[in-house]
Amino acid sequence: MMHRQADTPRDPRSIDRPDPVLIRYYLITSLLTGPVFPFVFLPLYIRYKTLRYRFDDEGVWMAWGLFFRRQINLSYRRIQDIHVTQSLIQRWLGIATVSIQTAAGSAAPEMSIEGILDPESLRDFLYARMRGARSEDGHTEPTSDPILQLLIEIRDGIAVLNERVRALEEAGR
């Protein structure tokens, strides 16, 4: 019974594969099914071996499968709910499943990111980028928006102009 604790919060962008502990979790859960163990374990093993994640600036990409391959793309801005699920065995192994839901009409989560060592940092990473995550606090002005960038330049330009006008008025007085 081991419990892995992620001491330093990992940058979720560096996650590209499930943690190797996931295969142990798959092994335990498939052993619990008893006699049908090989039939349960083999697909899970293939899934573990082929599972890939990518967290880029716009969204999440996830792919798995050997014979039948599946890829899911999902942009952060469309995320509606974030679920973090940890069963007892997962807690013992120190991993979690982070599920993401969009407004698509399915009951099952659109994306289940399995084998995550530090679910809290991934959750907060997604939380900071999901819908409704606008920075309203005026200190951090995102410059990715060209129109906003233009407006900020105009504002700063006017501020400089104001300074010059004031200086001229001072000089003329």
Binding site: Q80, D81, I82, H83, V84, Q86, L88, R91, R131, A133
Partner: peptide, 9 residues
């Protein structure tokens, strides 16, 4: 047994 946490904005 299974801890579920969900965040809804």
């Amino acid at each position: 047994w299974i801890i579920r946490e969900s965040t809804i904005t």
